[in-house]
Design a protein around this nucleic acid. Structure first.
Lengths: 248, 248
DNA sequence: CACACGCTTTGATTCACATCAAAGCCACGT
DNA sequence: ACGTGGCTTTGATGTGAATCAAAGCGTGTG
């Protein structure tokens, strides 16, 4: 776990995020097959490759900021990021956690409607939107892929509205745990790189309620706490039932 | 206001919604310029025209049903519809109200992830998805238009997550009132064709809380009740501040 | 090694909204 | 005109999660 940067969310820095070229190009990219890039053949991918800037962000660094001009779109290649919106008095809603392969910045507004920050160390491919639009004109497959990704996002957004509007705290936390990506080989282990406060702001709860709810799951032997950051699922059936809203 | 149809949500009827051809084609369509159809010139629009079935639905009739095979997409041309998801025990979240020009059924899943019902009498253009995809291949402008509509939807979805997760009952109701379309000539009149129960399920509240909150607004002279269905805004500044989350 | 800082957990109390209950209101059909 | 059914409003009470408060815990640092 990295140390916090305190109040250093200086999004207005001319160039947040360090540029870097690692040796290999798109062919070796970890999200070659899961991101929007899957729409293009290796040869056609070179166009995207040429248009991309590779950037890195440390935990809590701002990737993009609500109300800044929306000139760029991003492809997350490594790490976890959070997307959030704020109310004037500081109340925050995290509208999503991004994982490798996720696309960020789709929008036809002039300004971003949300902020995005790194949770863990993050790497992205950044594209100028004007350029991305040009590439889409020449490669309808890419636009098609983005539409299908947007549709999926939209379906997930609807799930989240159901969660926020109608699920109890326990159901919310259970749903959240099961929505996180898990490794094939350790299918019952859940990694929580974000803080309890982040989870709370994602679920529309307070951090105390999240913590209490997790403690409740431990008491009921539904999960076990390897560390505060690693949760081991002991009773998947019960957890799934809760998440689906069957356990009341 | 129409009478209720009681328990007649017989979505399994082979052909819900009555077919009808009104004399005029797409040129005279009320949503010609606001819907996805705006992407196509009059001549190219004929392709869509040929692919569309015009259907009508009475209040509370089901347009499409969660978990039914997602073979069709719809373009709402008249009326108001609600899109909703349910939990197994009957808790409901309305994820959106649809107005003329809105698109319904975008999704690359096999089955719909939500239901849609008419609130008022509704007219739609229905398309076979396979056919729509074929048309999109020939007309990238249409796909582009749908992507831009989906992006907008996504931005609205994020707003709604902020609302559901972090706003108070009063802020939710204020936001809702201001989100409804109003007529140019009567900019301070808000029409609520849906029930208090529908509004509650949209805002993650109970119908009693919605009613009490509206009564509160009347008491504070923020709005006036012409009829239960028509609300007149008296203090737009106050209502906007509440909706933005500035009034606490 | 000890201290400090940030995160998490746990406990006591409060409160906004839900739930339960009962009238009002209005449109429709007889 | 009257009665019925569905929606809305209002009132009394309950409760799940928020708030306020204070310990644990772990990791990096002087």
């Amino acid at each position: 776990m990295k140390t916090q940067l305190g109040s250093s969310n200086i999004h207005t820095l001319p160039e947040a995020g360090r540029k870097e070229r690692d040796g290999s190009g798109c062919e070796a990219c970890p999200v070659r097959e899961s991101s929007m890039c899957a729409a293009l053949s290796d040869t056609r991918l070179e166009v995207l490759d040429a248009a991309a800037s590779r950037l890195s962000f440390e935990p809590d660094e701002t990737i993009l900021f609500e109300s800044d001009p929306a000139d760029f779109a991003f492809n997350l290649t490594e790490g976890v990021a959070r997307v959030s919106k704020m109310l004037p008095d500081g109340r925050r809603q995290i509208t999503g956690f991004l994982h490798p392969g996720d696309f960020l910045g789709l929008s036809y507004q002039d300004c971003y409607a949300y902020s995005a920050e790194a949770v863990t160390p993050v790497k992205v491919c950044r594209f100028r939107k004007a350029e991305l639009n040009r590439i889409m004109r020449d490669h309808p497959d890419l636009e098609h892929r983005l539409l299908s990704m947007a549709s999926n996002e939209l379906a997930l957004a609807h799930d989240r509205m159901l969660l926020l509007g109608r699920k109890s705290a326990a159901e919310k936390v259970a749903s959240f745990l099961l929505s996180l990506p898990r490794k094939e080989e350790r299918i019952d282990e859940i990694d929580l790189p974000m803080t309890r406060g982040d989870i709370a702001d994602y679920l529309g709860l307070t951090l105390e309620t999240v913590s209490r709810t997790l403690s409740g799951f431990v008491r009921q032997q539904i999960v076990r706490n390897a560390t505060p950051r690693i949760i081991v699922v002991l009773d998947m059936a019960r957890l799934s039932a809760l998440a689906a809203g069957e356990g009341r």
